[in-house]
Amino acid sequence: MTDAVVAQGLTKYYGSGDRAVRALDGLDLRVEEGTVVGLLGPNGAGKTTTIKVLTTLLVPDAGSAHVLGQDVLAHPAAVRRTIGVSGQYAAVDEYLTGFENLDMVGRLYHLGARAARERARELLEQFDLADAADRQVKGYSGGMRRRLDLAGALVARPPVLFLDEPTTGLDPRSRLGMWGVITDLVRGGTTLLLTTQYLEEADQLADRIAVIDHGKVIAEGTADDLKDRLGGERVEVVVTHDDDLGRAREVLSGVGVGEAVVDARSRRLTVPVTGGAGVLVEVVRRLDDAAIAVSDLALRRPTLDDVFLTLTGHAPAEDDEADADAHDPATSRTEAR
């Protein structure tokens, strides 16, 4: 297998002088042909900047990038012929109809007028937008816009696809729909690099996951690799009395596969476990034996927060990311919608 996407030592600063913010800090990344890689990280980690560099939108300060062997920096025009891109928010024209949007993109890919029309109709059908095809996009729901935007990225049947947070801002139902669409897509052999803030999403869609923090990849592997390092599910307990925290910690550490983490302020304890619901029963029994009053108890899957806690020892930082966020449309745009 060859690598469809290769990024080496990507470095990018926004701004200059003392106020420069380092968005990418020597990022290395590979996407094997025909596979899906999920770039997982919090806001401001450098996900969007990475996508922008790889899709010829942004020139990095250092490093190199290749897509299907073509140098992104030296031959951006050649790279554009082989990629499809769907940004963080739907870049579709509100005043055009769904059909007109896709038809326009087809023409700009130089498919020819007739082929552009046919391809547009085909995609609208495929993305369940045929009924809305001739309505203006301003009447579309968020999920429909996203699907149309994704369809726009597929007009020329590109062998390599980049999706930047394809489900951010979508309601749970639309998110599931989007996952279905993407899953069908990659079954056809498309190489895909997608970014996400959700471990569950990366888990669902990606063959391999690269965890990114402060502009570099801090862990890389299959979802199972990462989960092994994370210890699968979590039991989360909130005790009623502060005094019980110490004893509860001992109890939980005895049941879990790792040390229990205590958040004293919220009286919350978290411990990685294996064994699912059976473990939960065991936890309840032992806490009860120890006469520890519990106000909340749950079994949950690891989140991005857990990934970061495990890999970096800190929660996804929001501190110095504030500056980077100004350049990363993720936060502002999603909230604005």
Partner: peptide, 16 residues
């Protein structure tokens, strides 16, 4: 609105 991003990733003429 990100529309120029979309245009710029297409293999279209940069002045168009």
């Amino acid at each position: 609105k990100g529309f120029i991003d979309r245009f710029r990733t297409l293999p279209m003429s940069p002045s168009a």
